[in-house]
């Protein structure tokens, strides 16, 4: 928030300089309603309607049919898909997988990002660009590149991760082929890949805290830890809330890396098949578009519900802070 409001002001600032017009006592009415605005909205509205609203409505209808990718047309089957979905353990397993992934990936994605931002903010200015580059660079890699690198690193025998483990005298881990570790392995990869984005948000927020706040606190005799817990963390609260919100929603949409790193198999025991993975599989691999549409709405509802709850919590925190 802080940078965008900051730049917002910055751009607004020159506007203030060249003599603000004396506010006209009586505006010539409110802006007159005209159709011009409608024309301006039209292109976006058209795309919005065709690629968002329409698939949403059509998909809802499809979920009541036996539509298949392999044949044209479809028959109405009532609630059959929805009933099947509620009794389909694979649906719940994939949702559970998504939730577990969200739960294990979000804390490190927030905590490590914060640590990185604090270190970068604190380290000598000359190091700044290097740290920023190192932490953020992975975020710029296409997911396929990330997956290729990590699949290769996780290889038993000749991969780097196990090489380091054995060099340290530890046992090898069959990262991607053991159903107990595959999701964690994907979470580690995800942290490495995307933490840089959260890091940048934190860094921007940290740099928005004026140094006199700290100086005043230091004069009052607050130690570094106190300054961190009493000043930095509270001032970052809103940024943290935002990052957690963005992160949870992003984690709930897990698919790309899980799909590529398990070669589309979902991993041993389907331990790494997230909700979108199952939707993809039901619809495109299993050809059952109708059934996949029904599951889509379940996930859709979960994501919207989580976003709304979070949004409420996070706004309330903002008000009381």
């Amino acid at each position: 928030m802080s940078p965008s409001t900051a730049t917002g002001r910055a751009a607004g600032a020159p506007a203030a300089a060249p003599a603000p017009r004396p506010a006209r006592p009586a505006r010539p009415g409110r802006r007159r309603a005209s159709l011009a605005g409608l024309w301006f909205v039209l292109p976006f509205a058209a795309l919005f309607a065709v690629f968002l609203v329409w698939p949403m409505l059509a998909g809802l209808w499809t979920s009541f049919t036996d539509r298949s990718l392999a044949s044209p047309g479809a028959d109405f089957v009532g609630l059959a898909n929805w009933r099947e979905m509620l009794g389909d353990s694979a649906v719940w397993q994939s949702l559970w997988t998504t939730l577990v992934f969200t739960a294990i990936s979000t804390p490190p994605l927030v905590a490590i990002a914060l640590a990185m931002a604090l270190l970068t903010n604190r380290a000598a200015a000359g190091l700044g660009w290097f740290l920023r580059l190192s932490y953020f660079a992975p975020f710029l890699l296409p997911v396929a590149v990330v997956a290729l690198i990590w699949e290769w690193m996780y290889q038993p025998g000749f991969g780097m991760v196990n090489g380091l483990l054995t060099a340290a005298g530890l046992a090898e881990v069959a990262w991607l082929t053991d159903q107990n570790t595959v999701l964690a392995a994907i979470a580690i990869t995800t942290v490495w890949w995307t933490v840089g984005f959260n890091f940048l948000l934190y860094l921007a927020a940290l740099q928005g805290i004026p140094s006199y706040v700290y100086e005043a606190a230091a004069l009052d005799g607050a130690g570094p830890w106190q300054r961190f817990t009493r000043i930095t963390l509270p001032l970052l609260r809103r940024t943290t809330g935002l990052i957690v919100l963005l992160q949870i929603v992003a984690s709930l949409k897990l698919f790309d890396q899980a799909y590529i790193m398990t070669n589309g198999s979902g991993g041993p025991g389907y331990a790494a098949r997230p909700a979108i993975g199952y939707i993809f599989e039901a619809g495109f691999t299993g050809l059952r578009v109708g059934y996949a549409s029904a599951i889509s709405y379940l996930l859709f509802a979960v994501i919207v519900a989580v976003s709304l709850v979070q949004f409420r919590l996070f706004s309330r925190k903002g008000e009381t802070a």
Binding site: L69, N263, G264, S265, F280, E281, F284, T285
Partner: peptide, 16 residues
């Protein structure tokens, strides 16, 4: 394409 699910999925989608 990668053998298995990825190929067959692409096959179905491509043919569709």
């Amino acid at each position: 394409f990668l053998w298995g699910n990825p190929f067959y999925t692409k096959f179905a989608m491509g043919a569709a």
